[in-house]
């Protein structure tokens, strides 16, 4: 299996605290990596650092062997970021937001209706996102991920605000993504079970 993402010697300081030092991990195709640890142990910061939103004190993240710092565009082209916050405009409708995504990254608009049906958002396309429930808004973020033609899913606490059915759906989607040769790195303290290979990385 080709190695996709590797972090070597990652060190991150937040203000006075050293969140982690000399951290190493590798992520291959068809693999998921769960970052575990108590709240405040830096799970989110690690994901943000791997994505490139945070500057690392030391260490390097490589994508397909190339450092992400120098080859940002190639890395971002194959990456989709699923975060706590919605990442969409609450005043706009689902359709407008997802059409905006199509301007940013490679998006499979041909699968638009199929994805919306699968996430149960078919009837909500005309409503501004403000009027959707938190769970439904998470599904809109999931829709972005499914439509994006991205090999790497970076997910920060994907299971919050989701009911049991929603959480099962997320696991199902991750498995499908891995089966297609994708990779997924997620931060969550909840125990999860996947068909595909699941590695874990524990932060103190």
């Amino acid at each position: 299996m080709t190695e996709l993402l590797r972090g070597s010697g990652l060190t991150l300081l937040r203000g006075d605290r050293c969140l982690f030092r000399g951290l190493d991990f590798a992520l291959h195709a068809r693999e998921a990596l769960q970052v575990k640890g108590p709240n405040g142990s830096g799970k989110t910061s690690l994901l943000r650092a791997v994505a490139g939103l945070l500057d690392l004190e030391e260490g390097q993240v490589t994508w397909r062997g190339q450092p992400t710092l120098g080859h940002r565009q190639a890395y971002c082209d194959e990456l989709v970021w699923f975060a706590h916050r919605l990442g969409f405009k609450a005043d706009l409708t689902l359709v407008d937001n997802l059409r905006f995504e199509a301007g940013l990254r490679r998006t499979r608009m041909d699968r638009f209706d199929e994805v919306l049906e699968r996430l149960g958002l078919g009837r909500l396309t005309r409503l501004p996102l403000r009027s959707l429930s938190a769970g439904q808004q998470r599904r809109v973020s999931l829709a972005r991920m499914l439509l994006a033609d991205a090999r790497l899913w970076l997910m920060d606490e994907p299971f919050t605000n989701l009911d049991a059915a929603g959480q099962a759906l997320v696991l199902e989607l991750i498995d499908a993504h891995l089966a297609e040769g994708g990779a997924c790195m997620l931060a969550s303290h909840q125990p999860i079970v996947l068909q595909g290979t699941l590695k874990s990385l524990v932060l103190q």
Partner: peptide, 24 residues
């Protein structure tokens, strides 16, 4: 995964202009 083609720079600019003007 069928590789959808990457949006051009102009498409990106138009997308953000369109979204923000819609918001305005």
């Amino acid at each position: 995964m069928s590789a959808a083609n990457r949006p051009t720079l102009v498409a990106g600019l138009v997308a953000i202009l369109r979204r923000d003007l819609l918001l305005a």
